[in-house]
């Protein structure tokens, strides 16, 4: 992959992200012109515009960027880890765990509004549980991890459904949360989630070459000098941390983590050294734009951005699936 082309791709992705963020701040029930946005970003004051920009729209746009970028990188890591291009950040139980965590928080202590932290802990716990179950027989096979994650997901989802049936007053709150939305994101959420995602990215970065080796299979990676079990555990933890941090802000936003790594891979190639940063920029830019789309659809109030990403990502996923049918034996 030519160096110049990669630099061009990075530049384009960063410009896209910057464009999306500025657009996101300008756009809203009361549009703010570009000049005012730039002015108030550089010199905040007590004007209405400045308050709207700094207290409402900028945190939301920053949240979109952090969540989108985090999910895209988590997806790329999970795809390498499971050697499966159709993996997404939620595949080993994170979504079901987050759902149960949020439901439990809402049912047990509804007055504290702990759905987000509940989801964060639930996502991490579910992935860890899947990992421990897949290890039960001494070694971890990534296929067993997928299956264990699936089983854990089914069980946890059935528990949260059961809980929801008994607390129907919470049904719509939890359902709305699960679709995934960024409306009302605050700076403190952005800070917590952003910090966790940066830490997780820093954990993943030194292992980019090991991830490349894992694309060739666990045995080949072993022969090349990768401590396969340890690297897999580290990557799984980091990806889950990113996923949980994203879920903490936004609920369950689908398809960003599945589709953005593919687009990044098509642009910069599968070498993770150049895939991961690009995936972050693309995911961040895409989710920020999707949020603008979500706000622009003329219904009563904004629709959740998770619906927009699913609507756009679903067809692309189908396309990938059909394209993949041409290859044989792709499952790990």
């Amino acid at each position: 992959m030519a160096h110049g082309k990669q630099v061009a791709n990075y530049t384009a992705a960063i410009l896209l992200l910057a464009f999306a963020m500025v657009m996101g701040i300008m756009h809203g029930p009361t549009p703010i012109p570009l000049g005012t946005v730039v002015h108030r970003l550089l010199a905040p004051n007590r004007s209405i515009d400045s308050v709207i920009i700094w207290d409402i729209r900028f945190p939301m746009v920053a949240a979109s960027a952090v969540v989108g970028g985090g999910l895209a990188v988590a997806g790329a890591v999970m795809q390498a880890l499971l050697k499966n291009p159709l993996a997404d950040p939620y595949i080993v139980g994170a979504s079901a765990g987050a759902g149960l965590g949020a439901t439990l928080a809402q049912d047990l202590v509804p007055w504290l509004n702990l759905m987000a932290p509940g989801a964060f802990l639930g996502a991490l716990a579910a992935v860890l549980l899947s990992y421990l179950l897949s290890r039960a027989r001494g070694t971890v096979s990534m296929l067993t991890l997928i299956l264990a994650g699936y089983a854990v997901g089914v069980i946890l989802t059935s528990v949260s459904t059961f809980l929801m049936l008994f607390n129907q007053q919470d049904l719509s709150t939890i359902f709305a949360w699960e679709i995934g939305g960024i409306d009302g994101a605050t700076w403190s959420q952005v800070l917590v989630s952003g910090l966790l995602i940066v830490v997780a990215f820093a954990i993943v970065w030194p292992f980019a070459h090991d991830m490349n080796a894992l694309l060739l299979g666990e045995e080949e990676a072993h022969h090349l000098g990768v401590n396969v079990r340890r690297i897999q555990f580290v990557l799984l933890c980091a990806a889950s941390l990113m996923t949980a941090a994203a879920v903490y802000v936004s609920g369950l936003i689908g398809f960003v983590g599945l589709v953005m790594p593919h687009i990044a891979r098509r642009l910069n190639g599968p070498n993770h050294r150049h895939l991961l940063p690009l995936a972050f920029c693309l995911g961040a830019g895409f989710l920020t734009l999707a949020q603008i789309v979500a706000e622009s659809i003329p219904v009563i109030g904004p629709i959740p951005v998770g619906l927009v990403t699913a609507f756009l990502g679903g067809p692309y996923f189908l396309y990938l699936l059909l394209r993949q049918a041409r290859y044989q034996r792709r499952w790990p």
Partner: peptide, 18 residues
């Protein structure tokens, strides 16, 4: 090897430096 990711020949050979 069975892989569905499009690493180039040079990228695979470079993995020997790991």
């Amino acid at each position: 090897l069975d892989t569905s990711f499009d690493l180039t020949v040079e990228e695979v050979v470079r993995l020997g430096y790991l």
